[in-house]
C-alpha cells in the first residue's frame, strides 16, 4: 500500500482517472484525498479534470435493450435434454441391450438363451453315451479314445454295425 503522495503522482492519477476519487486506484485513494485537503494547487487540478468528466457524462447512452434483442438471445439459449434422451445416455451397455431387444425387459430372451445353451451342452454329453449304451462297439472305441473326430465318424457309420437280418 502506497501511503506517501506527491503532487506529480496525484497529477498522474487525476489525468488518467479523472476527478472522482471512486475511480482512483484504491491503494492510493486515501493518501490522495489527504494531499488534496492540504493543497490548493491540487484542488485546481481536480477542478480542471472535473470539466472533462462532466463533458464525458453527456455522451449518448445506449438505448434500452429491445424485446427483439432479448428474444434473439433467449432463443439461442442452451436447452435441457428431453427425459427420454437423458435416459438413453445413462449407460452404454443398457443402450446396446435396448438396441438388440427393444421390446421391453430383456430378462425373458436372456433366460431363453441361457436355457437353450444348457440344453445343447447337456445333449452334447448325453447322446454319445446313449449310443454306446446300445452296444455299438465302434462308437465305444471312439469314445474311449476321446477323439471327437473319430467319434463322429463312428456315429455316422454306426448303422453298418447293425445285422441286416430282417427276416
Amino acid at each position: 500500500m502506497q501511503s506517501e503522495m506527491t503532487f506529480e503522482r496525484l497529477r498522474d492519477i487525476v489525468e488518467a482517472y479523472g476527478a472522482a476519487p471512486r475511480r482512483w486506484p484504491a491503494s492510493e485513494r486515501d493518501a490522495a484525498l489527504a494531499f488534496i485537503a492540504d493543497s490548493a494547487e491540487a484542488r485546481d487540478l481536480i477542478a480542471d479534470a472535473l470539466h472533462l468528466d462532466l463533458m464525458l457524462d453527456t455522451a449518448p447512452m445506449a438505448e434500452p435493450a429491445s424485446d427483439m434483442l432479448v428474444s434473439r438471445i433467449m432463443a439461442a439459449r442452451p436447452r435441457a435434454l428431453p427425459a427420454f434422451v437423458a435416459q438413453k445416455k445413462t449407460s452404454f451397455w443398457k443402450s446396446l441391450i435396448t438396441e438388440i431387444w427393444p421390446y421391453g425387459s430383456p430378462a425373458f430372451p436372456a433366460g431363453a438363451l441361457a436355457a437353450s445353451i444348457v440344453l445343447g451342452v447337456s445333449f452334447g454329453f448325453t447322446v454319445p453315451n446313449a449310443v454306446s449304451a446300445m452296444g455299438l462297439s465302434t462308437a465305444q472305441t471312439a469314445t474311449a479314445s476321446g477323439d471327437v473326430g473319430e467319434q463322429l465318424v463312428a456315429m455316422a457309420l454306426v448303422e453298418n454295425n447293425y445285422s441286416e437280418d430282417w427276416q
Binding site: 455522451a59 449518448p60 447512452m61 445506449a62 438505448e63 434500452p64 435493450a65 434483442l69 432479448v70 438471445i73
Partner: peptide
C-alpha cells in the same frame, strides 16, 4: 445485458 449494451455502444 444493459451493461454489455452500454460498453458496446460506447
Amino acid at each position: 445485458l444493459p451493461r454489455m449494451l452500454a460498453v458496446a455502444r460506447r
